[in-house]
């Protein structure tokens, strides 16, 4: 009965968006932190190539995180 009253589609979208945004952004940002930390370790070990690769991973992950946040805010501001 409740299912016929409640807009389950909208509620499911809230659940999906929250899981994707909440877990996804945390996971991607963690990759950025991992990349930054490992890049620092590699630099200290004088392994320039690996340090650059990990730094690129960090930059890419942080970029994706920022893009996801901006996209989320834009979606929220959309009418419809």
């Amino acid at each position: 009965m409740i299912a016929s009253i409640v807009n389950t589609t909208a509620l499911a979208k809230v659940v999906l968006a929250s899981v994707v945004a909440g877990v996804g952004v945390t996971g991607v940002f963690a990759l950025g932190v991992y990349g930054a930390a490992r890049s620092s370790d590699m630099r200290r070990a004088s392994r320039g190539g690996a340090a650059t690769a990990y730094a690129a991973l960090a930059v890419a992950a942080v970029t994706v995180t920022v893009a996801a946040i901006v996209y989320g805010v834009v979606l929220t501001t959309e009418k419809g």
Partner: peptide, 15 residues
């Protein structure tokens, strides 16, 4: 992040 994601998603649907 979880709190922000849930509140913003719910706000989009007017909850």
């Amino acid at each position: 992040g979880a709190g922000a994601a849930v509140i913003l998603a719910a706000s989009h649907f007017g909850y």
